[in-house]
Nucleic acid binder design. Structure first.
Lengths: 190, 190
DNA sequence: ACTTTTCTACCGAACGGCCGGTCTGATAAT
DNA sequence: ATTATCAGACCGGCCGTTCGGTAGAAAAGT
């Protein structure tokens, strides 16, 4: 009931503020102000500032990781699958800009165990791409080359959209995702 | 004389520490410890923590910006020039990993005027790439497409190397730069 | 040659302020 | 009456910053 909404509101405010100012520069007071509470009252919902940050990381990559995994092991040629993966990934980034910013920027403000989890997720994402790239290369669909480097190049290109995309700008999320999916495939095609 | 060395040492320590912990999480005490001074003594060399950060940004992009500009307006086909630009850019990133990390991560810890300067530099870099891409496209060397998006994709891919490159790892700086230069061209080739 | 002053580089204590976090008594809802 | 929720004062601690002081070298005066 009300408590649930509060908790959601607190998390949402924290995410917004952490993105804008960074975790360390943000104060619990600001978050409290944003949800209309006094600082002390936050601790009814949250054990600590750090725990709040950790919670913001939890489950954030689940959805896009699942989508990319599905595209990776779906039907179609490696080219088609890679395109779908890139598209899903870019859309995942664009639809969660605040999360992505915090996820990438505050990684090392996390306690060790949470950091490990983040690294596992990132590796899982890389592995999906690498697998499809290897497969496509062995079939001759993709140019020869270091598949690890290829995956990193691709993910870099797609991750970076979070730094320049403006939600109410010239381009829709879909337009960017489509364009980048095409580029991803072309980058690997002979 | 000695003062000069101290100042250099302070900046170097600050850069290292800002990269490892982030600007706000780092304390003047740590920087003082790293150079063997008391934190109060730092203020003999530096007006404030913020000024220290600003100084770390100063002139950081000058060299690579000049190299990329030279490659952009050099001889050769757009393909060759773009390749040289990407190579120069990647090398610039790889050879200044600490600076790049701080540059990208602490951008918005800067006072407004310094932030403006950073944005100008970033725009200048984008413009160089965009110009060559437009030229190559009009000559038919590159595929049709949004040149702004192309530049952003390319720069994203190349900038992202700072997140995964390990100086004493498997790959030399040159190997990565060469590989990425090739990928950059391929991404735009029909 | 010897004394005195000036300057540089640094010390180290202290300061005000804000931080994350705690505590308690009041309030509002049931 | 009981319980869930919150207001607001409060704490210790660390933060960036200031500042009076000083050792020692260099420069100037005699």
């Amino acid at each position: 009931m009300r408590a649930r909404q509060r908790e959601t509101a607190i998390r949402a405010a924290a995410l917004r503020i952490f993105r804008r100012k960074g975790y360390h520069a943000a104060s619990m007071q600001e978050i409290a102000d944003a949800v209309g509470l006094y600082k002390g009252s936050l601790y009814y919902y949250v054990a600590s500032k750090e725990e709040l940050l950790v919670r913001l990381f939890e489950g954030r990559t689940e959805k896009v990781l699942a989508e990319v995994a599905a595209a990776a092991s779906g039907a179609g040629s490696p080219r088609e699958r890679l395109s779908a993966m890139a598209r899903a990934y870019v859309l995942g980034v664009l639809r969660n800009l605040d999360s992505v910013h915090v996820y990438l920027r505050e990684e090392h403000s996390l306690p060790p165990s949470a950091l490990q989890q983040v690294h596992r997720e990132q590796k899982a994402m890389r592995d999906h791409f690498e697998r499809v790239i290897v497969e496509g290369t062995s079939r001759g669909d993709f140019v020869q080359g270091d598949p690890k480097l290829a995956a990193l190049a691709l993910l870099g290109m797609c991750t970076w959209v979070h730094r320049w995309y403006r939600p109410r700008g010239r381009l829709t999320e879909s337009a960017v995702a489509d364009d980048f999916a095409e580029r991803a495939v072309r980058m690997l095609s002979p």
